[in-house]
Simulated scan of single mutants.
Amino acid sequence: FGRWLLMSAYHMTEEALLAYIREIRRFRPRFIQAYPSTAAILARYMVEHGVAPFPTVKAVLCGSENLYPWQRDLLAEAFGCRVFSWYGNSEQTVLAGECEESTHYHIFPEYGVVELIGRDGRPVEGPGVLGEVVATNLTNYICPLIRYRTMDLATAATGPCTCGRHYPLLERVEGRLQDFIVTNNHRLISMTAVNMHSDVFDNVVQFQFYQERAGEVLLRLIKKPGYNDRDTGYILGELDKKFEGDVDVTIHFVTEIPRTRRGKYQFLVQKLPLDRWGISV
C-alpha cells in the first residue's frame, strides 16, 4: 500500500502543527488524506502564518465528512493543489467520488445501486432536486442491504461528465439530515450556507452550532486574541441574513470544542429528532 505518515486529529495545537508541518515536509507525500475539518485546521494555520505549500503534494483527498465550499477554497489556497472529495458510508451501500474534470460525485454502479427519494417516498425528478440517498449494496454477499435509507441528502446532476466516465452523477451531497439547522417554520438550512472562509470569522479560531429547539441555535465560539464586541455584532448580523430572520442565535464563548471519538469535528450538533418529525427532505 505504499508509505503512510499517520498524524493525530486530537492534538492539533499551534505547537503540534509546527511539528506536523516539519514531518510532512520531511516525509514528502504525494497526497494528503484527511477529514475536511482536520485538514482545514492545518490549512488555516499555514495561510495565517505564511507557510508555503508542500511541493510534493499533488492532491488533497477528503472524505468521511461533508466538504463545504469554504473548506475546499481554504485547502486549495494552502496546499496549492486540487482538492478531491468522495462519499460513502460504513454500511458500504454507496461509493462515489470526484474526477479530474469536475466536482460532481461519480456513483460507482458496480458497488451499489443508488436512488434519490423525496418526502413522498417517490424518486425525485430532474437534476438539482434534493432527495434522500437510498442504496442497495452489491458487494455484501452475507447480509445485503436492499434499498437502505442512509439519511443522507443529495441532489442529482446532469450527465455524462466530460471525463468520459458514464456513471450516474450527484451534483452535491448535503450530508446527513442531522446536518441541517431547523428554522422556526421548520425549514431546513444546510450548513453549506454558513461560510467560515470569510472576514466574518476572522477573529474566530473555531465554531460549532448546537440546536435543541426549532428556530433557536447556540453558537459556540473559540475567540482569537483580537476578538471584540464588533465581531459579535458582525457575526450575528450576517447569520441573521443567511437564516432570513427565522433562527435566533445566541453566542457562547468556550475554550475548547471536543471532537467525536473518531476524531471528527461537528459544525452542528443537532438534537432535534428530525426523522421522527416527518422531516425527511
Results as ranks from 00 to 15, higher is better:
residue 38 T to W: 05
residue 4 W to Y: 14
residue 74 L to W: 00
residue 266 Q to L: 15
residue 245 G to V: 15
residue 215 G to V: 06
residue 198 S to F: 02
residue 56 T to V: 06
residue 26 R to S: 14
residue 168 P to E: 11
residue 194 V to C: 02
residue 209 F to W: 01
residue 181 I to N: 01
residue 172 R to Y: 07
residue 132 E to N: 08
residue 214 A to G: 09
residue 47 V to H: 00
residue 205 V to F: 00
residue 123 P to F: 02
residue 112 G to R: 09
residue 43 A to Y: 01
residue 277 W to C: 10
residue 172 R to K: 14
residue 151 M to Q: 13
residue 182 V to N: 04
residue 78 A to S: 06
residue 163 C to V: 06
residue 214 A to D: 05
residue 40 A to Y: 03
residue 274 L to K: 02
residue 103 T to L: 12
residue 211 Q to E: 04
residue 108 F to G: 06
residue 155 T to V: 14
residue 127 P to Q: 10
residue 48 E to Y: 00
residue 71 Q to I: 01
residue 211 Q to I: 05
residue 76 A to M: 03
residue 262 R to D: 14
residue 151 M to A: 14
residue 258 P to F: 12
residue 45 Y to T: 00
residue 171 E to Q: 13
residue 115 E to N: 08
residue 224 K to R: 14
residue 61 L to I: 01
residue 42 L to P: 05
residue 90 S to C: 07
residue 157 A to L: 08
residue 188 L to M: 09
residue 267 F to D: 13
residue 8 S to E: 02
residue 255 T to K: 14
residue 111 Y to E: 06
residue 247 V to W: 10
residue 92 Q to F: 03
residue 187 R to T: 08
residue 116 L to E: 06
residue 19 A to C: 08
residue 151 M to F: 11
residue 254 V to W: 08
residue 250 T to P: 11
residue 117 I to D: 03
residue 177 L to D: 02
residue 33 Q to T: 11
residue 104 H to P: 03
residue 38 T to I: 10
residue 138 L to P: 06
residue 254 V to A: 13
residue 59 A to N: 00
residue 106 H to L: 06
residue 220 R to L: 12
residue 136 T to V: 14
residue 5 L to R: 09
residue 276 R to C: 04
residue 259 R to E: 13
residue 29 P to F: 08
residue 219 L to E: 05
residue 273 P to I: 03
residue 137 N to Q: 12
residue 121 G to C: 04
residue 18 L to W: 04
residue 174 E to P: 02
residue 211 Q to S: 06
residue 99 C to N: 03
residue 182 V to D: 01
residue 229 D to G: 12
residue 163 C to I: 01
residue 21 I to N: 02
residue 226 G to I: 09
residue 4 W to E: 11
residue 111 Y to H: 09
residue 268 L to W: 09
residue 184 N to K: 15
residue 161 C to A: 03
residue 225 P to F: 00
residue 187 R to C: 07
residue 58 K to Y: 06
residue 81 C to Y: 01
residue 241 K to E: 13
residue 169 L to I: 09
residue 218 L to W: 09
residue 54 F to H: 04
residue 113 V to F: 10
residue 260 T to V: 14
residue 200 V to D: 04
residue 84 F to T: 00
residue 136 T to S: 15
residue 91 E to K: 07
residue 253 F to Q: 12
residue 111 Y to N: 02
residue 135 A to R: 08
residue 51 V to H: 00
residue 22 R to M: 07
residue 45 Y to H: 00
residue 234 Y to C: 11
residue 116 L to S: 05
residue 94 V to C: 03
residue 259 R to F: 12
residue 88 G to A: 10
residue 241 K to D: 15
residue 192 T to M: 12
residue 139 T to V: 15
residue 257 I to F: 07
residue 37 S to A: 13
residue 205 V to H: 08
residue 243 F to Q: 10
residue 9 A to S: 10
residue 61 L to Q: 03
residue 51 V to T: 06
residue 240 D to E: 15
residue 107 I to Q: 05
residue 161 C to W: 05
residue 65 E to L: 02
residue 281 V to F: 12
residue 203 N to T: 04
residue 3 R to P: 02
residue 166 H to W: 12
residue 144 P to T: 08
residue 9 A to Q: 00
residue 54 F to T: 04
residue 76 A to E: 03
residue 249 V to D: 11
residue 14 E to H: 01
residue 244 E to G: 13
residue 279 I to E: 05
residue 165 R to I: 08
residue 47 V to W: 05
residue 60 V to P: 03
residue 229 D to H: 13
residue 48 E to W: 02
residue 182 V to Q: 01
residue 143 C to H: 15
residue 263 G to W: 10
residue 272 L to P: 05
residue 249 V to L: 13
residue 88 G to N: 04
residue 128 G to C: 07
residue 248 D to T: 15
